[in-house]
Design a protein around this nucleic acid. Structure first.
Lengths: 331, 331
DNA sequence: CGTAGACCTGAGAGCGCTCTCAGGTGAAAC
DNA sequence: GTTTCACCTGAGAGCGCTCTCAGGTCTACG
């Protein structure tokens, strides 16, 4: 049987004060004299009292919870476990929440059930919600019900969002490969509907056009297997490829394996630049030059923004996407 | 300004019924006739009513939240973002929680503040808590306050736990390397105080002794950099090493890079077996043969166990650690 | 027609806590 | 000694919902 859980009522009785005074002492609020403070604190210690957060939240109207929403596109929610992105979001948020003693609630939804859940979450969110991954349509729907929202991915213009320069990042990557003397620069893109992937594709195409090169590209899925197969296919169809810009490190890691498997060397024969600067970029061999998406910084900023109150509609906070040099472009 | 949030009171008024009846309909509880049901549902739709989960939790005494606790050993909580383990735990839990419509609350704590927070969390947990990473001492402390607890890592005997055969896994790995003809089998261990790392070290030592080999090992930190440097050092001191058992894929990925950097080839010159079967094992090049720690399965089982009620003290659920063959041992 | 029994329905008492507000106390000022 | 004011303190009204329980309605049966 579970132990009896003391309430603030018990603390007050033991300390010989009213519930209100006990509450004041427990919350470190002003308006309780020294002697009473001591008595209440003694009672708290004696009973091992811990406030009930639920009751506290209901009574005060405020709660200390930030919701994180991750909607995967495929069936199930496999992405969560295999893609480094999500844990980076969480890692960025936690330290910020820790200092204000707030909690993090994670909602990972399959694409099918997402729409119904969205409303329930929006209505019950307290400090606010960080949309880690979501479609523009669902983001808008969520935002309509809850204004304490920040998106981590590109969305409709009204939803406050953290905005990384995906287009510029891709553009920079292609230019870097060109600078290294590469002229046959292929690309492996992300999912056609993914907003970040779309921007990175745009950046690639823009740079290719500007440099007067010919585009050589394939679609991927932001996963390693997709990168592996796309690279293999590209190399078969265009054996003269001497560089690849790959829209995600996970795919880039797969591509490196595929390139190695054809007997080519990285970076000697094919130079590689990935995207994200995730754990995959340093686990790969050689390590991957990549465009750093500052996910932790973005997540931390999103959290801070929520903590400050309702973000202004259309609020944007911009983040650079910088080149991180590693071995896959070392000549 | 935020919209007015309708309460069940509003629904009842609009539907022309009592709060109790509205509650019955909303919760799909028996005891409300057809006509009233329809009226209440219409009112819910009209007002866009969503129940307040906090109030519901307080009134009913039950809440639908599972807490996940991850305590990192070092300063800060960097592990969360860089180590694939945590997202695998979350990924394993989410599908189970989804079907019962429960939520997941994440607590990532630095080692310094952990002790104080533990009590507060324990006292406020509802469905229960999954201890993703924790020291035995803190696990016991937590368990004393809250019996709805399952640990994912080895702990004191009373705390219910998911138990993977870390010793056996390490033992199997070394035997496999021996079977492949390797005789100079080094090891890179995990943090000295990490319970899983301790077991894997034990398994290595046991196998080495049984096979009549000499131990050659170094300490790592479960991170890539640690693996890199440990491998480099081992190779300098013992150039004849022809295989390595590495207690974590992340370190193994680093070790592969270090080995390659010395001009040796994997697996030709040095055969590698990692541990975990995390994303790092497939991002590495060549891909890593590894001992699969079924984290998702363990997390799912832990969650299911909590959903069933208080687990029996000392409850253990065992999981095999199987060999997954990939390229780093391909001859 | 009376009555038992099944089924609805709503009033109201909390869940544990916060917070306002009225009253009470004591020191300082006149 | 009276008044003023600052500071404490506790009573009590909720926060929004659940759930028990008493009463009310309706059907079926003797």
């Amino acid at each position: 049987m579970s132990r009896y859980k003391p309430t603030i009522e018990d603390v007050a009785r033991v300390a010989g004060v009213s519930r209100a005074t006990a509450s004041r002492v427990i919350n470190n609020a002003p308006g309780a004299s020294g002697p009473l403070r001591v008595r209440v604190q003694a009672a708290v210690a004696e009973l091992g009292y811990q406030p009930n957060e639920t009751a506290r939240a209901l009574a005060s109207g405020r709660q200390r919870t930030v919701d994180v929403i991750a909607i995967t596109y495929g069936p199930g929610i496999d992405w969560l476990g295999t893609h480094p992105y999500f844990s980076r979001v969480l890692a960025g948020m936690m330290p910020v929440l820790e200092v204000v003693n707030a909690q993090l609630r994670l909602h990972a939804l399959g694409h099918e059930t997402a729409a119904e859940m969205i409303d329930e979450i929006a209505e019950n969110t307290t400090i606010g919600a960080v949309l880690a991954d979501i479609t523009p349509a669902l983001a808008t729907r969520f935002y309509r019900r809850c204004r304490r929202t920040v998106s981590m991915v590109p969305t409709a213009s009204s939803v406050p969002a953290m905005q990384a320069d995906n287009i510029g990042g891709a553009y920079t990557a292609v230019n870097e490969l060109h600078r290294l003397g590469r002229r046959r620069i292929a690309a492996i893109h992300g999912p056609a509907l993914n907003p970040c992937a779309i921007d990175r594709r745009t950046g690639y195409l823009r740079a290719i056009r500007r440099l007067g090169l010919t585009k050589v590209d394939a679609d991927g899925d932001f996963h390693r297997e997709g990168g592996y197969h796309a690279a293999k296919k590209l190399l078969e169809q265009h054996p003269d490829i001497d560089a690849m810009f790959i829209a995600c490190d996970l795919m880039a890691a797969g591509a490196v394996q595929a390139i190695t498997a054809t007997g080519r060397r990285v970076p000697d024969d094919v130079s590689i630049i990935g995207f994200d600067d995730s754990i995959a970029s340093v686990c790969s061999n050689p390590t991957l030059t990549t465009m750093r998406l500052p996910v932790e910084d973005m997540a931390a900023a999103a959290t801070r923004l929520l903590l400050e109150g309702d973000p202004a509609p259309g609020h944007r906070q911009r983040f650079p996407v910088d080149l991180v040099l590693r071995d896959s472009t070392r000549n």
